[in-house]
Design a protein around this nucleic acid. Structure first.
Lengths: 335, 335
DNA sequence: CTCAGCTAAGTAAACGTTTACTCAAACAGA
DNA sequence: TCTGTTTGAGTAAACGTTTACTTAGCTGAG
């Protein structure tokens, strides 16, 4: 098998303690001469430290776990990118877990991560149920929520303020002169990405005296392209006079654009569309999608930084509200 | 800290050996009675086995490493999804590594994975340099290449045959009646995804007697949306009479569509476009993109399965050529 | 010359498991 | 009753490190 510290010791004619000290460049306890010899032995044998043994004795695995409901989603992968970046920079590794939004799988993973003794957890883009929270609490490792939050259980989170961002989106449309504005939203029962965006949207309308008795919000189950198409069709059926729509995700927005195209409605000439997220496809759409951007990559980075901060200080972390911003492209017309 | 097997033993008044046997449901060595007692103690103390200690003694970490040049790419994330699926199913975890196409980072990761004693490696979507190969060989763990290959070093791979697939794409266009066909390709120096696709394309033209002395292949550095746009513009400048183009990636194809749109060229009426990959955006494009599909998710799954097969049997794995297929949408017109 | 104090190095325990070996009791066959 | 086998269970070594403790030799102050 692999050479161990023992082999190195033997080869250099010193004790394993000395080798260990040299490996960890412990302050003192060896002369320059022996250091040379040991280094040579290490080189010669091709010795590689065993992180498992190390982990056992100092209770540090240098590994964190990340839970996603959908690894192949475009939002997710951007977050992951950010997370992986800083995690690697700090000499740790990340284990990815695809919960597929299934409770059982999530619990499974939590159990697994616990047994593997990860040092921290990043829980992303999904509701934190009581069950999950209990499991996480039992693990006694720092945890931060990414792009989700929980008012019931206090775990620090990193996300943009969905309501604010939606407010900004709607306000932007109003600024551009639109008065009849519709929304294509996700599930209103979704307390994270559903309701808040709807509320932000309506707040903007209200503040500008544009809120009608029957607000034009069309809610789907999720945030998919397909649902964007469907909801746009519905919206069109109910209100011919709507001149702009706010879609709760870029995927939905792109679906809406496709739907409009099929119905021979020109974007942005006949109707304006603004999205939410700023994922890659938004600039590839035709026309390129104006959208309210979440700094996804950066959110991943900040979340990881926060986690490691907690790991280092042992203190509870402070939640971070990330800034959102409008990125103007070509799907919104000024009236 | 966490309760250990020792605590459980004490609590149940048995030896740690007995507890271990019960935990692993070893064939025999304990009565039903003690099993009950031990289980109860485990429950009561909330004992969770320590995978690190376990890993140390039986040299099994139940973890594999996956290397990607770009975690947030759409091809990548689909592969990852597949990999994660079967890895989890088989009770292992995956550590993701984002090499960012940098040699130093890759070598770093390999070193890290070595120290962490991962049991296998999935190396995805990137050229395998001699340097990488040496590092991998030194680790002495099974490795499979995903969506890449190496003729020099024999590591098993899982991928579609790029040349075949390109041949299929071009043939499809020819079948549809196109005679003047152009290609937007990646880097011809890329021996994996660059050259073979060009060669497949040209082979198809040749076999149908359509190969001109100056073949209309426009090569970019990579496979991005932007490059797709640029190359399409170039292609248009050089040959007005081209009626169809094969793009070496869906991103490029979508870029080409966008470019065409800007130039007021209708797809597929004025020009037909076929892509390569079948990632999510291809069905979201306007018009929806006809493309030659790689079964990405499945490739990830197969690669993981192959890896675990090798792990189990200890034998060298057999490479797998995955099937490609045309998925017809609306970006190609029959002439 | 002696002894305190320092340095380089070694010894061995510990981390939390698994497992080979041992042992005593129970039991079956003669 | 005696012997041999099975069964339930314990003891202790091992996995590859880190680290507290020990030791021997040396230096320099008194």
């Amino acid at each position: 098998m692999n050479p161990t510290i023992k082999d190195v010791a033997k080869h250099a004619n010193v004790s394993i303690a000395t080798v260990s000290r040299i490996l960890n460049s412990t302050s003192a306890g060896y002369s320059e001469g022996t250091k040379k010899r040991v280094k040579a032995a290490i080189e010669e044998l091709g010795y590689k430290p065993n992180a498992v043994a190390r982990g056992l004795i100092n209770n540090k695995t240098q590994t964190i776990g990340v839970l996603f409901p959908n690894v192949s989603g475009m939002v997710t992968s951007e977050l992951l990118h950010g997370i992986e970046n800083v995690t690697h920079q700090l000499g740790h590794s990340v284990i990815v877990c695809n919960t597929a939004s299934q409770g059982k799988r999530t619990l499974d993973y939590l159990q697994l991560l616990n047994e593997k003794r990860v040092e921290g957890i990043l829980f992303a883009s999904e509701m934190l149920t009581d069950e999950y929270y209990e499991a996480i609490k039992d693990m006694k490792v720092p945890t931060v929520l990414v792009s989700t939050k929980s008012q019931k259980h206090l775990l620090p989170y990193v996300k943009v303020d969905d309501q604010d961002a939606a407010y900004t989106a709607a306000s932007y449309l109003i600024e551009k002169g639109h008065r009849k504005i519709g929304m294509i939203s996700g599930n209103p029962d979704d307390m994270i990405a559903g309701l808040p965006r709807i509320e932000g949207f309506q707040a903007a309308l209200r503040d500008h005296g544009l809120l009608t008795e029957k607000p034009s919000v069309f809610s789907a189950e999720g945030f998919s392209y397909k649902e964007g198409m469907e909801m746009f069709k519905k919206l069109r059926q109910e209100g011919e006079d709507i001149t702009a729509v706010f879609a709760a995700s870029d995927e939905m927005a792109v679906g809406a654009i496709a739907s409009a195209y099929k119905m021979n409605i020109a974007v942005p000439n006949d109707i304006s569309i603004i999205g939410y997220d700023n994922i890659k496809i938004s600039e590839m759409a035709i026309p390129p999608l104006t959208t309210v951007a979440q700094p996804l990559r950066e959110m991943g980075e900040k979340a990881a930084e926060l986690l490691f901060e907690m790991l280092k200080t042992g203190e509870d972390g402070q939640s971070i509200i990330m800034p959102h911003r409008i990125v103007e492209r070509e799907s919104v017309k000024e009236l």
